[in-house]
Simulated scan of single mutants.
Amino acid sequence: MDLAPGEQASARRAAVQQSLSVALATGLYAVSFGALSVAAGLDLPQTMALSLLMFSGGSQFAFIGVIGAGGTAAAAVAAASLLGARNGLYGPLVAPFTGARGWRRALAAQVTIDESTAVSTAQPTPEAARAGFWWTGVGIFGLWNVFTFAGALLGDALGDPRRYGLDAAAAAAFLALLWPRLADRAARVVAALGMGVALAFTPLVPSGLPVLAAALVAVVVGWRRGPQQPDAQEAP
């Protein structure tokens, strides 16, 4: 439904506030990535290069997981690439309201991640969706790299990060982000189907493909339901 100007401004402020809270929560668990990365044998410049250039939490954890287990660089790159491929599926969802032109298209592509997509597509207006995308994506990028640096510096002092549960921090944080999105039946069905597909594929295919297959479930369901525009939703 169309919102009055005051309601549109309120929706945009709410999107910014949500973005900042998500950015802070997500950025904080980059400490675990930095610590685990140095524990896996990477040095500080290598760790920071992964966060600055790859900038996909799941892919980064997959990369250092393979390296830490004694795998080859090629195997680590393959696992990270398969997990990162899901971000390409988000492009058609966020492109209509990012407002990206010229060099901003490259920046938009870099910050198109799980969280920026989730926050932006949950907003009631195109303006709020645009604000949610940029504030979430850029906010996480900045904080993720700051806390990666901190975690890498603390890595040697902490010892084995698994002793503190830091190896599970990323999964726990993402579950906390996802949980509020399962408020309606359709979202729960998609989540259940994706989980079933991922579990079925896990023992059969290389690392990364189960997540990509689960993401395709959501894409197929969304395509069958038709496009859902942010301005067609009611304000919260």
Rank of each mutant, 00 (worst) to 15 (best):
A191W: 11
A170Q: 06
R188C: 13
A170Y: 04
D184P: 12
V190F: 04
L182I: 10
A170L: 07
A200M: 04
A200S: 06
R188N: 15
A171R: 05
M195G: 12
A187M: 13
M195H: 09
V190A: 14
A183P: 02
T202Q: 01
G194K: 05
A170K: 04
W179M: 14
V197W: 03
V190C: 08
L193V: 12
L175V: 12
V197Q: 03
A198R: 06
F174R: 02
P180W: 06
A169V: 03
A172G: 10
T202S: 03
A172M: 06
A173H: 01
A187C: 13
L175N: 09
V197N: 03
A176Y: 05
A170I: 07
A186S: 15
R185Q: 14
L178P: 02
P180E: 02
R188Q: 15
D184A: 15
A187P: 08
L199S: 02
A172H: 08
F174K: 02
L178S: 06
A192F: 11
L177Y: 04
V190D: 01
L177K: 04
A169R: 00
R181E: 05
A187V: 15
G196K: 07
W179Q: 11
G194T: 06
A186I: 10
A172W: 09
A200N: 05
L177F: 13
P180Y: 05
L182V: 07
P203E: 00
R188G: 14
W179D: 05
A172E: 02
W179R: 10
L178H: 05
A183S: 15
L175K: 08
A170C: 07
D184H: 12
L178N: 02
F174V: 01
P203N: 00
L182S: 12
A186F: 12
P203F: 04
L193Q: 11
R185N: 12
A169S: 08
F201D: 00
V197F: 04
M195I: 11
A171E: 07
G194C: 07
W179T: 13
L175G: 09
A171V: 09
W179G: 04
L182M: 13
G196A: 13
F201L: 08
M195A: 14
A200Y: 08
L199P: 05
A176G: 11
L177A: 09
A187N: 10
L193R: 06
L204W: 03
A176R: 08
R185T: 15
G194W: 05
T202R: 05
V197I: 11
A172L: 09
V189S: 10
A186D: 15
A187S: 15
L204H: 02
G196R: 06
L204S: 00
L204Y: 01
D184I: 13
